[in-house]
């Protein structure tokens, strides 16, 4: 029982991180129907920016809370800029090309960014200064670390902020309108290129936050850390119904939970397999996902 509770706590932590990454996939897919392979690398870049900034700020003598907060905000901004640059260089010129071309361009960007990280940051793990936040509390037999509390707290905050942005603001409405009908949104005066760029930036910001939190949680980052979580987060987006924001959050939570439970009760070696099996099963049995609406491309 205590073991289960502990697994659930860990699952929520991990699931929240997957949800943050999945949002980037789902938003970009919703608006330009592209599996943005480079998204996993943006997440990795976020993780690295986190450790770079936290280490520096810490060495300047700032208190841990300031270090964390500032690093989070700056890394999100950095990744937003990075994703906008990638979009502008590698995807925007291909807007009229076949979908395969854009997909391959995305794949190329993913390899490019991953190796760029390797070249500038080295091939070895880089340790996070996790000693900043220590300790935790016991809750019904399960140990909850303060780090987990911070991770879940920040995740919830970001998810709420995103929901407000997308469903309550004028820009959010414009984003949804552009995803549904680009020609018509141009006819009402929406600059779709700007909206697409913004979508990439928001998705990247969330991924950067996720990268930092994973770095804090596991204690280190690596240049190729983006690949597997990237695929899992995409699975989460598909599970929730691609293009659907609420679905991506739900999907991330489910995938994280399943992974932790599978690792705890079945086999930790095969935990990565479960995410892939779920992805394939979902696509086979309910290709529109749990929250899916009319994803079949009859969007008129």
């Amino acid at each position: 029982m205590e073991f289960l509770l502990q697994q659930l706590v860990n699952g929520i932590t991990l699931g929240g991180v997957y949800a943050l990454v999945a949002l980037g996939y789902t938003m970009v897919y919703g608006i330009i129907q592209l599996i943005n392979f480079a998204h996993g690398e943006i997440y990795a870049a976020g993780g690295y920016m986190g450790v770079i900034l936290i280490s520096w700020l810490f060495s300047q003598g700032f208190p841990p809370a300031v270090c964390l907060g500032a690093a989070l905000v700056l890394a999100m901004g950095y990744c937003a800029m990075l994703a906008m640059a990638v979009e502008k260089v590698a995807y925007k010129p291909l807007r009229q090309s076949s979908r395969l071309s854009v997909l391959l361009s995305a794949l190329g960007m993913s390899i490019f960014l991953q190796n760029g990280l390797m070249l500038t940051q080295g091939v070895y793990d880089r340790a996070y200064p996790t000693e900043m936040v220590q300790g935790g509390f016991e809750f019904g037999g399960a140990v909850v670390s303060w780090m987990q509390v911070i991770i879940v707290g920040v995740t919830v905050l970001l998810l709420v902020a995103l929901n407000l942005l997308v469903f309550k603001t004028r820009i959010g409405k414009a984003m949804r309108a552009t995803a549904q009908d680009k020609t018509m949104s141009a006819l009402v005066g929406i600059n779709s290129n700007r909206i697409i760029s913004l979508t990439f930036a928001i998705g990247a910001g969330l991924a950067a936050a996720a990268g930092i939190m994973v770095g804090l949680y596991y204690g280190s980052v690596r240049y190729d850390m983006g690949f597997v979580p990237g695929v899992k987060a995409f699975s989460a987006a598909v599970l929730g119904g691609i293009g659907n924001i609420t679905g991506a959050m739900l999907g991330g939570l489910i995938i994280g939970m399943i992974e932790v439970l599978a690792a705890g009760y079945i086999s930790s070696e095969y935990k990565d397999v479960f995410a892939f099996v779920i992805l394939i099963a979902v696509l086979y049995f309910m290709p529109t996902g749990i929250m899916g609406e009319n994803v079949d491309d009859t969007r008129v």
């Binding site: 409405k173 309108a177 549904q180 009908d181």
Partner: peptide, 10 residues
Amino acid sequence: PEGRRIFPRL
């Protein structure tokens, strides 16, 4: 435009 092109999920 032709076909009205309402944003269906707004």
